[in-house]
Design a binder for these strands. Structure first.
Lengths: 235, 235
DNA sequence: ACAAAAGTGTTGCCGATACACCCATGC
DNA sequence: GCATGGGTGTATCGGCAACACTTTTGT
């Protein structure tokens, strides 16, 4: 009757910002080296089998942390991939999440030779259908960053408007007018001045901002998707 | 070690338009009566367990057809619900799809006492977490109908602009200016004139339109990003 | 002729873009 | 002072909501 039975996995596409030393920051994504046979030694999305008693999102956050040492500042379900031939070893249904992590988190993360970062728009050949999954996640990030207030989760607790603008530029891949960007973001009351300024620049010191409701408690709650909530303004 | 193991189900939220006789059309949703014990005799979303060798979307379309006799004109993955306590009989992960069906399909559908339709915004108490799921699907439909060209899938092959506008009004719950609606929809080249007009009206006969690529179309340019599994637009 | 809905024209508002310009700091 | 990015002001353009107006049918 049942020979294999479909198995349930949870994986996560992680995005972070990397500033390659005085060049424009860009999106990077970490992958883990496979240690088992389907696609042995190839790069794959961090993830694992779903334990019977663990919520989906927790499983995503946990496997993500175990393999890469990162803790996401934003985490949202992406899509569930279940094509019958995704894996050569039997049916696997993957509930995939996507995550944003802050740049300062990245620096302290695991960098063994079992984890490697790649530019999100220039990937090697990944295991399974993971290339398509990352492409889809990237597409979602690009569309969502335009109407949702998530860009700040790629930065630290406080940031300048120029930094926030750099995030948008990196994600959307095009320069933005500083003046107009400032207005659009301040008009939305998305952010709040901290009262401090960033010193040490070779020019006028910019104000520091923080995201609107940032509580000193380190546990961000998942901002988006479950049935009770979702905000939308524009395509 | 493993006592129950999470089981995988596929369910679908179905939306159709019902014109309650010379009143404004509204969104209705069909449910099936449960014949087993968790929530026996309560109404639940059509669905079933995922067979090992069946693609997710096919499973959604099949179970939907088996239980309600309907064939969707639009079908898209909604979300995967996996809270540990969703079902009292053990862990169940449900990959949920949402579907639109044409009004003319509905009339010929199963209406036994095991299937019943309810207004989408006025539901009874459903089994499991299905109330929340329908609410989420409704929310998705409302936001998506504003930027995607899906409203026509609730109508027949040809339709008048007034009918298409009625769909938008029913989904969004507010009246729209006929003149402006006409312009916005014709400007997008979403639809094409058929050359015919609808006769028998007590006023000036309106032109009939059809959706842009209707004829023999398997050449969808992908309307919504779904890497492997894709949204269908089947007649 | 009249009612009613199809279909067209026109105006005004509002938000986004483009870009000129001033401000404050390190050197 | 000068260079550099921070920050402000403002004109223009295009899309859209509002609404007046014309057209075409059935009765």
């Amino acid at each position: 009757m049942e020979q294999h039975e479909a198995r349930l996995a949870v994986s996560t596409v992680i995005f972070a910002l990397r500033s390659d030393e005085d060049s424009a920051p860009a999106l990077w994504t970490p992958f883990v080296r496979r240690t088992r046979d389907p696609y042995l030694d190839q790069w794959a999305l961090p993830g694992g089998w779903l334990p019977d008693a663990e919520p989906l999102e927790e499983a995503a956050a946990r496997t993500l942390a175990e393999t890469t040492g990162l803790r996401p500042s934003y985490l949202e379900q992406l899509y569930t991939f279940g094509a019958v031939d995704r894996s050569p070893t039997g049916r696997v249904i993957s509930v995939v999440y996507w995550a944003l992590v802050r740049s300062d988190e990245v620096t302290g993360a695991v960098v063994g030779n079992n984890v490697q970062w790649f530019p999100a728009d220039d990937l090697p050949a990944l295991a399974f259908d993971h290339n398509a999954i990352v492409d889809y996640a990237l597409q979602r990030l690009r569309t969502k960053v335009e109407y949702a207030h998530i860009a700040h989760t790629l930065l630290g607790e406080t940031f300048t408007l120029a930094q926030l603008r750099a995030v948008h530029e990196a994600v959307r891949g095009q320069p933005l007018d500083p003046a107009n960007f400032r207005r659009s973001v301040t008009a939305s009351s998305e952010i709040v001045e901290t009262g401090e300024r960033l010193a040490g620049t070779p020019h006028r010191p910019p104000k520091l901002y923080r995201y609107r409701q940032f509580t000193a408690g380190s546990t961000d709650r998942t901002p988006d998707p479950t049935p009770t909530e979702q905000t939308r303004t524009l395509p």
